[in-house]
Nucleic acid binder design. Structure first.
Length: 289
DNA sequence: AGGTCGACCTGGCAGC
DNA sequence: TGCTGCCAGGTCGACC
């Protein structure tokens, strides 16, 4: 699933391509991806709007539209937003793995270029919000979106604020990192990688972390996310950027999906176990409990 | 308030 | 080859 670095890569691509374009038409082959009010309402609201901005908040994509509106997109596990110049042939593969049948929502701009929302598993969601993106980003719950915590690459993400959040949580640190209402944007891949980089055991209770560990975690968290953005994200299978290209960070993964391989730091074997119903990868020696 | 679990979906892959 | 069961980057709502 796309996490912060993948979403950021898509947002940066789209910013170059769709800003100031006018929406001429939209279509949807699977209305359940539209939240709340539904398809007809959404189509009416976005028709003839001009794209004014493309932003990210956590894993959420916020496309600013003229008339103080926001087109909200969440890619969940396998969603993709792809920009395409011109029409799509009836059987054209949008990219490897994603066939025409997986395109569930489509925006057509006045120059005939398109923005496609494709999602094989149909978990992704789209909605229109009657407010501009900055206000939605600040207070997503007000617009019936999920509560979002600290933005890890913003200036607000100080060591002090991070530590305050960590110290009051009684659950495992990996679960805290992945809790979007505490820190926004980290998912299963980067939580594993960040904890490895900081040499912290994923099962350790957040409130038991020493101040030295919290400081190390704060540092690796930002470093890993920034590096992953430089590599344009991680493609395990489905993820592609807005041009349909893979991200290159998979080659940099130290523990995620590497169970049974040797730890790059100590040479011991990387372990896989189950945590909060998801896979966790770590080195038992470098990340002692 | 906090945790745990199933539901939402499809496709790929391992094992038989 | 074909069937079955398991696994997957995320989130939400029901329940205790």
């Amino acid at each position: 699933m796309p996490e912060l670095p993948e979403v950021e890569t898509i947002v940066r691509d789209l910013r170059k391509r769709i800003i100031s374009k006018k929406i001429k038409a939209s279509s949807c082959g699977y209305p359940r991806i539209i939240r709340d009010a539904g398809l007809a309402d959404l189509q009416r609201k976005i028709h003839s709007c001009v794209v004014t901005s493309v932003k990210r908040r956590g894993k959420n994509i916020l496309i600013g539209l003229s008339g103080k509106k926001t087109l909200w997109v969440h890619l969940r596990m396998t969603g993709n937003l792809l920009f395409k110049n011109g029409h799509l042939a009836p059987n054209e593969r949008v990219m490897s793995l994603v066939e025409r049948k997986h395109v569930h929502f489509e925006l057509c701009f006045d120059d005939n270029s398109r923005l496609l929302f494709a999602d094989p598993r149909k978990f992704g969601r789209v909605a229109v919000v009657d407010e501009e993106p900055d206000k939605v980003a600040k207070n997503p719950e007000r617009f019936l979106l999920a509560k979002l915590g600290l933005e890890p690459l913003s200036r607000m993400f100080s060591l002090r604020r991070f530590a305050m959040q960590i110290q009051k949580r009684n659950k495992a640190i990996k679960e805290v990192l992945m809790d979007q209402s505490i820190i926004a944007g980290i998912g299963n891949i980067y939580a594993s990688e960040i904890l490895f980089a900081a040499s912290i055991n994923p099962f350790k209770k957040a409130r038991d972390l020493t101040s030295e560990e919290i400081s190390r975690l704060h540092c690796s968290l930002r470093a890993i996310l920034k590096k992953a953005i430089r590599y344009r994200g991680t493609s395990i299978s489905d993820y592609r950027d807005a041009s349909g290209e893979k991200g290159a960070f998979a080659t940099q993964l130290q523990v995620y999906k590497r169970a049974g391989e040797k730890c790059s730091r100590c040479g011991n074997i990387i372990h896989k176990s189950r945590q909060a119903q998801r896979s966790t990868f770590y080195c038992k020696y470098c990340q002692k409990a």
